[in-house]
């Protein structure tokens, strides 16, 4: 009976994951390996293709895979020489703002997923806020991994592939921000988790009882323990030959915290350097006094 309960929890979290996260790992890997049968994603590899791809990036609608390659860049962009330094600076900032919009949407997705974890909404409301504040960026980084390979990453719900080299070429500190995520993702992807494993792992991250400022740790740890059991069982079933996968996965949580700390410092640096930069109030809330 206990194992049956753990399997039921696993199914429940997997369903919540599918409901709340539009681009699953299975779908992302199919796009990256060209097995969807649909058009290949639009590739952004330089400033010119970034200008051309902006209209796709800014389209908030979830695609039905059938996107068109952009015909012509909007007139305002077409008139801009991409060699122009100031203009590419503005373009970088606009791209950064698009990333912010997507991040804000991702926070909503993660919040809805968290609410679906049995027992989460019964926790002290202050503790729910704390768990999300500390968990969301870690979750976003984990969710980036399936979208990435060593050469680049899918963005805009899989409609665009942006090359790693291009991201690296952006001016400081933009150019430095994604490289640690690629390094993490390439290693993380070798674990070959599937979407069901991912759903349970995300729940484990959210239910971390050691977040600063938690008021009532015990019920959080109890919930996490159950999800951990469910994850351990799930991994045994989905990866019977992968020894120590459970332990390896838990070790990733330490790496994640370091990445988040560095990410938040980069954002704080950006805020100081870029006079025109606007940080969304929700992201400000999350990052303020985080680490």
């Amino acid at each position: 009976p206990e194992a049956a309960d753990l399997r039921a929890l696993s199914r429940h979290l997997y369903e919540a994951y599918l409901k709340n996260f539009p681009l699953t790992k299975a779908k992302a890997r199919a796009i990256l390996s060209g097995k969807t049968g649909d058009k290949a994603p639009f590739v952004i590899h330089d400033m010119k293709s970034l200008m051309e791809g902006e209209q796709i990036i800014n389209c908030r609608q979830i695609p039905c895979q059938e996107h068109q390659q952009p015909q012509q860049p909007p007139a305002a962009f077409a008139a801009v020489g991409h060699a122009d330094c100031n203009m590419s600076g503005e373009l970088e900032l606009r791209f950064f703002n698009s990333c912010q919009s997507r991040s804000v949407e991702a926070v909503r997705e993660v919040t809805e997923f968290a609410k679906s974890i049995p027992g989460f909404v019964n926790l002290d409301l202050n503790d729910q806020v704390t768990l999300l504040k500390y968990g969301v960026i870690e979750i976003m980084i984990i969710m980036m991994a399936p979208l990435m390979n060593k050469d680049g990453t899918l963005i805009s719900y899989g409609q665009i592939f942006m090359t790693r080299e291009f991201l690296k070429s952006l001016r400081k500190p933009f150019g430095e921000m994604m490289e640690p995520k690629f390094e993490f993702s390439v290693k993380f992807n070798t674990l070959e988790l599937d979407d069901n494993d991912m759903a349970l792992f995300l729940a484990v991250i959210i239910l971390s009882g050691d977040r600063p400022g938690l008021l009532n740790v015990k019920p959080i740890e109890c919930l996490q323990e159950t999800v951990l059991h469910s994850l351990e069982l799930q991994l045994k079933i989905s990866h019977p030959d992968s020894l120590q996968l459970f332990a390896k996965l838990l070790q990733k949580m330490t790496d994640l915290r370091q990445i988040v700390t560095n990410h938040v410092h980069s954002i704080q640096l950006l805020k100081k350097r870029e006079v025109d930069m606007f940080l969304h109030p929700l992201l400000q809330e999350i990052m303020k006094d985080l680490y």
């Binding site: 804000v104 949407e105 919040t111 809805e112 704390t130 999300l132 929700l282 809330e285 303020k288």
Partner: peptide, 21 residues
């Protein structure tokens, strides 16, 4: 804490789109 995290708190209480906030 709730006061300092009004939007997060709102998201927890309902599923308002943060983009609309």
């Amino acid at each position: 804490l709730k006061e300092k995290h009004k939007i997060l708190h709102q998201l927890l209480q309902n599923n308002t789109s943060p983009v609309d906030l």
